Amino acid sequence: MKVGIVGASGYSGLELIRMLNMHPIIDGLNFYALTSNANDISDIYPHLKSIVKGPIQKWVADQSINENHIIFLATPHGVSSEIVMNISDENVKIIDLSGDFRLKEEQKYNKWYKSNHPCFSKTSNFTYGLAEWNKEEIKTSNFIANPGCYPTASILAIAPLLKENLIVENSIIIDAKSGISGAGKGSNEVTHFTNRNDNFAAYKIHDHQHIPEIEQFLSMINPKENYITFTPHLAPMTRGIMATVYSTAREMITNEELQELYKEMYKDSYFIRIRDSIPCTKDVYGSNLCDIYPAFDERTNRITVISVIDNLIKGAAGQAIQNMNIMLGLPEETGLTFTPIFP
């Protein structure tokens, strides 16, 4: 199979290249940008020298689609929708890593992404690609909206409690920390070394675009779940996300019962590990794994769930390949069975 990557020179695009180059059924990668770029990908990133090569071509919708069996859009929001707007072939398989096709209400997209969507009517064609919860829908879909990194860690942590109706509605508080790579490749004041080194900062309080994405999916599990409190932070590390999720329990539950609940819920999920000790981001660094640890606090009647992922892999490129595998009828772990990197 031949695979096209639009936005191959970004961080998520680079992870797609690294993993797809090792994938057993992929025998060709094509790289694209919206403007002409004669550079070979290995000239831009010397770490790919003698391993991966190919020019970054200008994206031309019909021509580029015909060159590939599947397309990954590793582009910022606003860019993916411009590309999809000009695609008329509904048989092409597209996995979009941006936020352009995740939200199902146009007004919410305009509000939270602070821009107008050029082809919102096409959103209905896209399946939300959270594989552990939407696998059957993904199998029959040609268009996948890959979840955001924060929503992936957060939803996987809290969804089992909602499904079993164990928590009070609208009591969810998500305290999440991300590595700097989540801000993307572009250099700015936020990612500047002097502002991030030895520093820890909250940002976009009550205003992050992943809030409605998390709320949308949780309300599908429980229609009474209308809102969450979500606070993201930037940690002085390159990659990784830790989501600490708090909620109020409806009744007493033991830690042993929580462990059994989560293990049963995710027993068929290759990439979910239910831990009996508190995980850290290094435990999943460089992998498509999500480690989860639930615990009940009898004193406060709250359940705390720790969830850790690599934001560039399970939170982006790895999950996109997991979705590709499911779309193609392959075992979801195909090409993704590498272990975390430690130390």
Rank of each mutant, 00 (worst) to 15 (best):
Y11N: 14
H47N: 00
I26A: 09
I56E: 10
I17T: 10
T35N: 13
D43G: 00
Y32E: 01
Q63P: 02
Y45F: 12
I51L: 14
V52T: 11
N30H: 13
I25C: 00
L20T: 06
V52M: 08
I44Y: 05
G54Q: 11
Y45C: 02
Y32G: 02
Y32T: 05
I44A: 03
A8E: 09
N37I: 00
I41G: 09
F31Q: 06
I17Y: 07
S42Q: 12
A61M: 14
K49S: 12
I51H: 10
G28P: 08
S42N: 10
Y11C: 06
L34Q: 09
G7Y: 02
P46N: 15
A8S: 13
D62G: 09
I41E: 01
F31K: 08
S50M: 11
I51Q: 13
G7W: 03
W59Y: 15
G10F: 10
N39F: 09
S42T: 04
L29S: 03
G10K: 02
V52G: 05
G4T: 12
L14R: 13
I25K: 05
A38I: 10
G7P: 04
K53Y: 12
I25P: 00
K49R: 13
A61D: 14
G13V: 02
L16S: 06
D40H: 08
S42Y: 00
A38G: 06
S42C: 07
N39G: 07
I17N: 08
D62V: 14
V52F: 09
P46D: 11
S12N: 09
M19N: 15
R18W: 12
I26P: 06
I17L: 10
H47F: 07
G54S: 04
K49P: 04
S36H: 05
Y45H: 12
G13I: 12
I41L: 02
Q63F: 10
L48K: 06
V60G: 09
A8Y: 03
G28C: 08
A8F: 02
I25H: 01
N39R: 14
I51E: 09
G7M: 05
S36Q: 14
S36N: 14
I44Q: 05
D43S: 11
L48P: 06
G54T: 11
S50Q: 11
K58S: 12
N30S: 11
N37P: 03
L34P: 09
S9C: 07
F31M: 09
N37H: 02
L29C: 03
G7L: 06
I17K: 01
A33M: 05
S36Y: 08
L34M: 13
I51A: 04
E15W: 10
W59M: 14
A33Q: 09
V6F: 04
A33T: 09
D27T: 12
S64T: 15
K53M: 00
A38P: 03
S12F: 02
L48N: 01
L20E: 04
F31T: 11
L20V: 06
I17F: 03
S50W: 07
F31P: 08
N39C: 02
G4N: 03
Y45P: 04
D62I: 14
D62S: 14
K58W: 07
V60M: 07
G7D: 05
D43M: 07
R18A: 11
G28A: 08
T35V: 03
A33G: 14
I5W: 01
M22E: 15
I56M: 08
Y32L: 08
I44K: 08
K49Q: 14
G10E: 01
R18P: 03
V6C: 07
G28F: 06
G4L: 01
S36R: 05
D40E: 10
D27L: 03
